[in-house]
Amino acid sequence: MTALPEPLGPDVVAEYGTGLQTTRVLRAPDGGFLWWQGPGAQVAGPLLAPAAHLVPRLPDDTGAALLTVPERAGAGLLHRVGGSASAAAWLRDFRPRARALVAHSLASAARALRTLHAVPVPPPEELPLGAPPGLGRLRDWAHGSGELRERALACWGAERMERLLGWAADLAPDPVRDLVPAPAHGPVQGPAPAARSLIHGWASLGALIPPLSRGRVALLTGEDLAAGRPELDLGWLLGELVELAWTTPHQNPADLQRLLLEAYGPGPDPVLVGRSAVLRVVTHMQDFATYRGWDDELLGYIAFTAELIDEEGRRAVPQGVS
């Protein structure tokens, strides 16, 4: 399929990014908005969404968010949505109506994710879906070098780093690192494969777009589609709420956490959800250091994530919700 041109021009209403990714928001002729995401300066393009055809189209009457699949545009991907600001941006607006909008968006996202998680994962020979790219970057950082890694190891100790990598392997095994090939004679070595579902791979407040007026909430979907435990998507969103509560003390996300899990429904393992939340916060810390550079603020993150690892992210899962 021929790619559309990269959207530019006077209709741009917002643009931001890091060395990992650039986001550009434009007004669309139909009154909606175009969200274009392209490779950052430290990433070789183009961005692709090869498994986007697996994403289900959810009817309007389900109360679920629209899982928007992108079109190729230049070196990036283009989504058509009804809003110009993400749920992450709306959370910085302290008006009660803004928080109600975020709550509605999280519930819609939870319903959409439950449907996505029910989509059968294609066999590897048809479409090899690995772990989400975010976990790949986390693994590369853990096995690499750099100031953040050295300072984290000095604070955490090697045992905490190993626990993190073990949780990543349980939630979304990496075919190369986490599964050891079988010897010529004998059983397969290494951990048992996790129960695999189709997962969003980057279910994020920044990818959750409430409509500006009418229409459906949208969850930008496609680029990070992967195979893994469904708890990973839930923990990714809950981890962002945990981080928000830490960085913004007057924010209490307990009601939003509870609402997200209740809207998703029964089934997720709360232990795995909590561990996934920790992986999200550590991935954000690691991405910040990699794509924006060292900042002394990261020293606080290192201490904070040590606490999260020790408690296995239990603060992300309100009591009584499982």
Results as ranks from 00 to 15, higher is better:
Gly74Leu: 00
Ala75Gly: 14
Gly76Val: 01
Gly76Arg: 00
Gly76Asp: 03
Leu77Lys: 06
Leu78Glu: 06
His79Val: 01
His79Glu: 03
His79Gln: 03
Val81Pro: 06
Gly82Ile: 02
Gly83Val: 07
Gly83His: 02
Ser84Cys: 06
Ala85Ile: 08
Ser86Pro: 07
Ser86Phe: 05
Ala87Gly: 13
Ala88Asn: 13
Ala88Asp: 14
Ala89Tyr: 03
Ala89Asp: 14
Trp90Val: 14
Trp90Gln: 14
Leu91Val: 11
Leu91Thr: 12
Arg92Cys: 09
Asp93Trp: 11
Phe94Arg: 15
Phe94Asp: 13
Arg95Trp: 10
Pro96Glu: 08
Arg97Ala: 15
Ala98Gly: 10
Ala98Ile: 03
Ala98Val: 04
Arg99Gly: 14
Val102Met: 06
His104Thr: 15
Ser105Glu: 06
Ser105Asn: 03
Leu106Pro: 07
Leu106Lys: 06
Leu106His: 07
Ala107Leu: 05
Ser108Met: 02
Ala109Cys: 10
Ala109Asn: 09
Ala109Pro: 07
Ala110Asn: 09
Ala110Phe: 09
Ala110Leu: 10
Ala110Gly: 09
Arg111Gln: 14
Arg111Pro: 11
Ala112Ile: 10
Ala112Glu: 06
Leu113Pro: 08
Leu113Met: 08
Arg114Glu: 15
Arg114Lys: 15
Thr115Glu: 13
Leu116Asn: 09
Leu116Gly: 06
His117Tyr: 11
His117Arg: 11
His117Trp: 08
His117Thr: 13
Pro120Ile: 05
Pro120Gln: 03
Pro120Arg: 05
Val121Asn: 10
Val121Lys: 07
Val121Phe: 09
Pro122Ala: 03
Pro122Ser: 05
Pro122Phe: 04
Pro123Gly: 07
Leu127Asn: 10
Leu127Gln: 14
Gly130Glu: 06
Ala131Glu: 15
Ala131Asn: 11
Ala131Thr: 08
Pro133Glu: 10
Pro133Ile: 00
Pro133Met: 02
Gly134His: 10
Gly136Lys: 00
Gly136Ser: 11
Gly136Thr: 00
Arg137Ser: 07
Arg137Lys: 05
Leu138Pro: 00
Leu138Asn: 00
Arg139Glu: 08
Asp140Met: 00
Trp141Gly: 01
Trp141Phe: 15
Ala142Asp: 01
Ala142Arg: 01
Ala142Pro: 02
